[in-house]
């Protein structure tokens, strides 16, 4: 019986060849470069590795990178959902234009975005000149980093939530209302439970994208050590000093933390999905 089960043919053929190709491809594109990073970082030895990745300047950069990325993804979660909601639920002139605008951060070279944001938020910029008297400094501070990360992350949330919202028929809300639910109850008990797997995916994508972002941030951040220096910039700095081992050590630390965070998000999603089945 055991051999029979092993030899059983699937109705969808080609498993062998497709999985083979997938593994090869993933190895070439992702695993080999990543393992090279890991191997390179071992040159430092455990002690050297630890000293490098826990240096105060590096730790400060983690705090900024992960903190700002998390905050940016969270802000995008709220406003991205709002944008998706408006685009799906209402018909108004200019809807298609706004829909197209959402994708711009995908397409724009990030350096351009960085320069544009800096020009606007600099103390003498369009918006900066009004914010400055209020005591709000955006450009060349961690707030600037946040603004840049919000900019590049928005489309991820909008584009993952939009199709799910489209599937949520207005009848669901009408049914909830006819059963006596208030608008609040309808949102939290009917809409959100259906939306949150998509929201979480959007959040994870925006978060991951923000972690890796370099181009737009370095223009607006000011890159002051211990204050507004992001981890990817530290890696570049080390590379420019020909400290390859140090650069890869920080990269490895960042990879591991990111991987763990994304894994947690994935587990949350898996749990969310399997609760209903």
């Amino acid at each position: 019986m055991a051999t029979l089960a092993l030899r059983r043919r699937s109705v969808i053929p080609g498993f062998g060849i497709t999985i083979g190709f997938t593994l090869l491809y993933l190895s070439l594109i992702i695993l080999i470069p990543l393992s090279a990073t890991f191997i390179k970082s071992t040159q430092l030895g455990w002690g050297g590795f630890w000293t490098t990745v826990t240096a105060p300047r590096v730790v400060a950069s983690y705090k900024l990178s992960f903190g700002a990325s998390f905050l940016a993804a969270a802000i995008n979660l709220v406003f991205g959902m709002l944008v998706a909601w408006v685009l799906v639920r209402y018909r108004f002139p200019g809807r298609r234009l706004i829909d197209a605008l959402v994708d711009l951060p995908f397409a724009l070279p990030t350096a351009v975005a960085g320069i544009a944001l800096t020009a606007i938020y600099a103390p003498n910029g369009w918006l900066g000149q009004y914010l400055e008297p209020l005591g709000i400094k955006v450009a060349f501070t961690p707030t600037g980093v946040l603004v840049a990360l919000i900019f590049i992350g928005l489309p991820f949330v909008v584009r993952t939530v939009q199709p799910v919202l489209q599937e949520l028929k207005p009848e669901l809300e009408e049914a909830a209302a006819s059963l006596g639910a208030s608008r609040r109850q309808t949102i939290f008990r009917v809409l959100m439970p259906s939306l949150w797997p998509a929201l979480l995916t959007g959040f994870a994508l925006a978060f991951a994208r923000a972690l890796g972002e370099y181009g737009s941030v370095i223009f607006i951040a000011g890159n002051m050590p211990m204050v507004s220096e992001i981890t990817p910039l530290l890696i570049i700095t080390k590379l420019e000093q020909y400290d390859y081992a140090g650069a890869t050590a920080i990269a490895v630390a960042m990879l591991v933390i990111s991987f763990l965070l994304l894994l947690i998000i994935n587990l949350l999603q898996w749990w969310g999905r399997h609760r209903h089945q």
Binding site: E171, L172, E174, A175, A176, S178, L179, A181, R189, P193
Partner: peptide, 25 residues
């Protein structure tokens, strides 16, 4: 009580929770 043509059941809730919805809100 309104019954919709495409059912409009809350698919993330069990049948029990669907029927109980009007009472629990």
């Amino acid at each position: 009580g309104f019954v919709f043509q495409p059912y409009a059941l809350f698919h993330h809730m069990t049948v029990f929770d669907n029927v109980a919805f009007g009472l629990t809100v």
